[in-house]
Write a protein that binds this DNA or RNA. Structure first.
Length: 255
DNA sequence: ATGACTGAGCATCTCAGA
């Protein structure tokens, strides 16, 4: 299985990038985040023509996740079950493929909306952990892939790339990420590349990419039986150097 | 002192991103 995740910062702006990347890389499944449109505006035709079926969990202007797959899949969840019904933010999609649960997620940033915004980030991460716990209790092979909006360790934030008080670095945010690891999930990038920077994001401002002031916030977590078969895991840095790029690059994992 | 990012939307500014 070749599985990827990519925060595209608007699928309507990035459809050509995504289609070209799919044609060149040919992953089985690609999870997208920050598609920023409702389902009817999602450019599904751009991907159908190259063999990828889309399933979209969209909303107007903000958030939005989707999955593109060239293998058959069934959508099992379009929201996290533990969140209140009135929460309509489009941040989670879960599919079933060959007995595996594959989840694409866009965790809240947590820097906007004051204390309530940060509390929402933590509550959302708790709901994600609850879902992971549920699947693992059933021995379902599981992948969590997406923009977690957490730099897990010091090496995941270039010095000066963020203010020390940023929500992505907050001890409570990092604790929520560690909780996922303590459930037995393996951080695919770090499992194969234990040391040094492995950035997946560079800010648009201040020449962050040219100065390599990046962050590692896009992650792929694997349950134990899948982690045992892990072959490769890498961010595709070259995408950040293209014309009109997303501020995130795709992360590709092979297992 | 200067100029300094991107995208969406009931838009010529505001909000959000991170």
């Amino acid at each position: 299985m070749r599985l990827a995740t990519w925060n595209v910062a608007s699928i309507r702006q990035r459809a050509p990038h995504v289609a070209a990347w799919l044609a060149a890389t040919k992953p089985d499944v690609l999870f997208l985040q920050e598609t920023k449109c409702e389902e009817p505006a999602f450019p599904a035709m751009a991907f159908a023509g190259i063999g990828y079926q889309a399933s979209v969990v969209g909303q107007k202007a903000y958030n939005g996740v989707a999955v593109l797959s060239r293998i058959p899949f069934t959508v099992t969840h379009r929201r996290l079950p533990a969140l209140p019904a009135e929460d309509t933010q489009a941040r989670y999609v879960e599919i079933e493929v060959e007995g595996m649960a594959l989840a694409g997620l866009y965790a809240p940033n947590g820097n906007s909306g004051g204390e309530a915004g940060f509390a929402y980030k933590l509550a959302w991460m708790d709901a994600l952990a609850a879902r992971a716990r549920e699947l693992l209790a059933r021995d379902t092979p599981l992948v969590l892939a997406g923009d977690f909006n957490v730099c897990p360790e010091a090496a995941d934030c270039a010095p000066g790339a963020l203010a020390p008080t940023d929500a992505l670095l907050h001890p409570a945010s990092r604790a929520r990420f560690r909780t996922l690891l303590w459930l037995g999930l393996t951080d695919a990038l770090r499992a194969l590349h234990p040391d040094g920077p492995l950035y997946t994001f560079w800010d648009y401002q201040g020449g962050a990419y040219q100065r390599d002031l990046g962050l590692r916030i896009d992650h792929v977590l694997l349950s134990p039986t899948l982690a045992e078969t892990l072959k490769s895991a890498a961010p595709d840095r070259a995408e950040r150097g293209r014309e009109h790029p997303s501020d995130h690059v795709p992360v590709l994992v092979e297992f």
